[in-house]
Nucleic acid binder design. Sequence first.
RNA 1: GGGUAGAUUCCGGAGCGGUCAAACGGGGCAGACUGUAAAUCUGCUGGCUACGCCUUCGAAGGUUCGAAUCCUUCUCUGCCCA
Length: 388
Amino acid sequence: MKSPAEQLEILTRGTAKVLSDTELLKKLEKGKPLRAKLGVDPTSPDLHLGHSVVLEKLRQFQELGHQAVLIIGDFTAQIGDPTGRSTARPPLTREEILANAATYQEQAFRILDQEKTEIVYNGKWFNEMTFSDVIQLNAKVTMQQMLQREDFKNRIAKDQEVRLHEIQYPIVQGWDSVEVRADVELGGTDQLFNILVGRDLQKTMGMEPQVVMCLPILEGLDGVQKMSKSLNNYVGITEPAGEMFGKIMSISDELMARYAILLIGEEVDPAAHPLEEKKSLAAKIVARYHSEEAAEQALANWNNRGKLDEVELPEFVPPTDRKDLIGIVQAAFDSLAEPKSGSDVRRLIQQGSIQLDGEKLADPKSEPELSVGQVLKLNKKRSVRIAG
RNA sequence: GGGUAGAUUCCGGAGCGGUCAAACGGGGCAGACUGUAAAUCUGCUGGCUACGCCUUCGAAGGUUCGAAUCCUUCUCUGCCCA
């Protein structure tokens, strides 16, 4: 086992904020496995690279012999974390939450060691509470404390609504820390406030307060806003290898540097050609969530993009009922589970996005001759191979 | 409880009886350029086998030849006062 000082060095690497190093060191010096808490709300079923930053850190705790405590916020999901929101979020139904929670866990274990993870649903204690319990819980914090929070302050300043249930969120999340007796809580930097509330509540309850560990927020593919599903700027960890590779190749050079540090813990070599560095980054990420072979294949496909014959593409059988270009292209998008309206397709055609073996097809009404093996390019990311 | 302002297409936000599928900005998409990146420039951005037709402007009714625009009721929200 590593010494407390060594562990501290590893654990704080890549973090945005730790409150505080010395407290963490003291806890480590006790020589007992720490309980490292991570709370997730199953509001959206798919994990993406943004979530992976925190999960990777939690795995480091596991590797060092500590106990990961993964809290599935089946209860909190019903409230909806107001973090970063300018408006209240719509609540999910019980069924949606449970279904999301199941996929969530399954995906989280692509990163975490299942054997060393304790999973708890926070509904376990919150659903037991009576209204008077809730009142007592609320009595442990002040309104002023809650209003310290950026999100709330801003919304109030902008005359936007803040619903009372939303200010319960930090309290509820904080109480989780009391329930699981967390020694450390992990989260993105946007979770700082919530995690601090947990610390306060633990103190109030006479417990040793948890260490706050915040990890940087990963920007989405646009490089500006945080990675999130609703902004559609994410890379899902279950995405097909080719897709994952392509998405990473589409990021800017600046963003590549950031991804490299946050996702694979490596610095980009400034002497190397950025294109090569980006390919290597993409390959490493694909390898992590798929396999080395898949990464090699994805890289090969990418390099062979000019040579159409050598690339593996999804196959597409042209429809028999429609011979016009709009119909064909629309069916192709459907086959990729990415349906588009006829008007959208028409626009793509007129704007020159559609190519057959490299030739632009610009007339929506034309009825092109298709033969097996030809490549139909639909847009920047999507191409299909004609099959019989 | 009283007063007052408002709800418009993905978002913000014009429009205040016909010329409105609805200005403008953001976002998104496509093309050119490039390192099949970014930046930049240009175009597109409700639906429809489409020079036309259909459905939209919180909801439901009504006035009118004609309504996003006027009236009524309802639902929701902000602000001020209590």
